[in-house]
Write a protein that binds this DNA or RNA. Structure first.
Lengths: 203, 203, 203, 203
DNA sequence: CTATAAGCGAGACGGTACGTCCCGTCTTAGA
DNA sequence: TCTAAGACGGGACGTACCGTCTCGCTTATAG
């Protein structure tokens, strides 16, 4: 996040001079408050107070609360989504779907992902950063799996892999965000299987 | 929305005493402001002012801005999602998917649906009402189509129709909310087709 | 209070049709609330609720909260200030001063008199009614005493009796309202004595 | 008024950090609005708007509208009540009485003094500040005059000077607040003379 | 090895919106 | 027909945050 400003127009602060202590304190405070009260219930003042930091120090490096929180949780969320290799796309997709569904439904990172979706709807810059963390990274894994599957001859050549990726994640996001029904492992697996069936070269 | 009040706990106002004039004025004002400025940019004071109504009259019947706006747009959004009957589930599902994708991407109701998703993440009561309007109604249509298809022998009997419904809408919500790629008619049709292929008795 | 409107312009309610039950309930409720919470802390809604009366029934007969409260307490306050007759103006004035000081400092009526003074500063009609109850009646008593004293030859003939009355009550009101020092019996007596000395024919 | 904050309990803001600009703007706005519309007709929002100041900045330093207005006018009201020295207590007391009566009846400060008296009846802290400005300062002058008179041998030694001071101001406050009769120069002089006569060593 | 510029803590600032309270008027259901 | 109940338009209240600003203090480079 700060790097996105670093090479920007003249006038922005020099990241080299940033106080590591304050930086860590802010992210930790944000993470702690977020887990205790949720995104909507916390304020920049609270983060500053808890971090023992001046408010200006927050606004010097982030544009708003959402950006701080995003970075606070994003750093671990996007950390490293492993590329599974079970030997078949069916297994790989199941593993990915199950893992993402579990993350969304049961982890702090999932709660943050869901709580922040609203911010992304009226802030293009934030939306970009949000996607970077919660969307793009995981899609890349699926795309890699699908490409490997195609190379192996498991996937039809007329399939649009981008579309296919949407078909895998879509239902999981949908349940996670609207909560019209629980986001179970069984459901995640069903989504993976349906996709696998639909794109398989030979059923 | 008024119904959520009517049978509620004692102490809430009696909906029979509500002023029709004020009620309409508030919803109309909310709808107008929403279309002009978007959810995040409007306030309860503005709605009250535009409606020529005291703020208390709004808070008497709705708990907050989100609830007003939801009801204002909900009444037309949920109005009547037509059940298509093209003769085949493929055609029906395509029609539904295309229609919903178009609504989400290009209409005021779609913008509202997206703008309000954030509210649903920290307000269970609101989330329930939100689902009623933006989720449940459309799901019912798909379920009807799928059941009819099964009766006609177009759909495998081992398919969980709820899951199937999620597979249709999921990808569309996913693109609509994360905006990682445009929500095109082609994409909607692809989602419908993939589902159809996956659940068809005979391909 | 209602009598002041009774013979007024056409359109005002006919006092003959007033419900005695409601009338008493309102005054009693006002008196009770006043004694429990003080003038500033109560509202017309509270009076109506406690009286088991519609708010309109209050506004039909009184212009505002202050008028209700004034009448509620005024009826007993102005009731009948006895004209003392101790045989000398010194004794009479002492009796009057002590009684008024005691009323102001220690009785519910006194608290009301003091609490309502603020209302009289921005409502001429109210001020008139207020004076009628808390000022005029008591002044009449002093004037009677002074006139009798003059007739008896106890008071100099060049004394303006109106002024003299102000000199008696003034210091008591002053201490009652500004509270810069306690309003004691001794103080009241001192005021009476100083006045007596100043106006006596032969000291 | 800021002094009431400075030595107060921990937790109150540090007056050293107060913005002089905002401070002056608020007091000036309050004074202006007060003179144009009177205390009852103005609101904290109006003061803030006119001062070009956030409402919170007012509430940070004053507890309510009355306190702001009091300080706004108090600073000039209490400014410096001159100690007259006409050579005799009769002359001094006349001068003081006439001046105060004139202030109360004809100046903006007098209007404020009268308009604010109601606030003092349900707010002990405010009452204290009110007295400081409108009561104590003027009493000190009278006490000084009386003490000087006693030293000069003009005043009897058995006179309680505090009581005497009440006898001077009492009648003026009484007429000023109840308005049962006009507050004239003649009346003020009569009050001064009656007091002088009553306390003079040799009449 | 200073001096000087930046970041830092603290928190006041102008401002917007909130949700509550009360006013005095208007509407309605039921005795 | 009158009244209790209470909704209504209006407006002020006092609070919570926002994102900017202004202080001294401290820290680290650049002369």
């Amino acid at each position: 996040m700060p790097e996105t400003v670093a090479p920007g127009p003249i006038g922005l602060p020099d990241p080299a001079r940033r106080s590591d202590r304050a930086y860590r304190a802010i992210l930790d405070a944000a993470k702690g408050l977020l887990e205790e009260h949720g995104f909507a219930a916390i304020s920049v003042d609270q983060i500053a107070k808890r971090a023992g930091v001046g408010k200006q120090t927050i606004y010097r490096w982030w544009p708003n609360k959402a950006a701080v929180v995003l970075e606070a949780h994003g750093e671990q969320a996007a950390a490293h989504v492993p590329v599974p290799d079970t030997g078949s796309i069916r297994g790989d997709l199941r593993r990915i779907a199950e893992d993402f569904a579990n993350t969304l439904a049961n982890t702090a990172a999932g709660r943050v992902c869901i709580e922040l979706i609203g911010e992304a709807q009226h802030d293009a810059e934030f939306a970009e950063a949000y996607r970077e963390i919660f969307v793009t990274a995981r899609r890349a894994v699926v795309l890699a799996v699908l490409r490997r599957g195609r190379d192996r001859g498991e996937v039809r050549h007329d399939i649009d892999l981008e579309y296919a990726t949407d078909m895998l994640f879509g239902p999981i996001w949908y349940r996670g965000l609207t909560q019209h029904a629980p986001l179970t492992r069984t459901f995640a697996r069903a989504a993976a299987d349906m996709l696998t069936d639909a794109i398989a070269l030979i059923d």
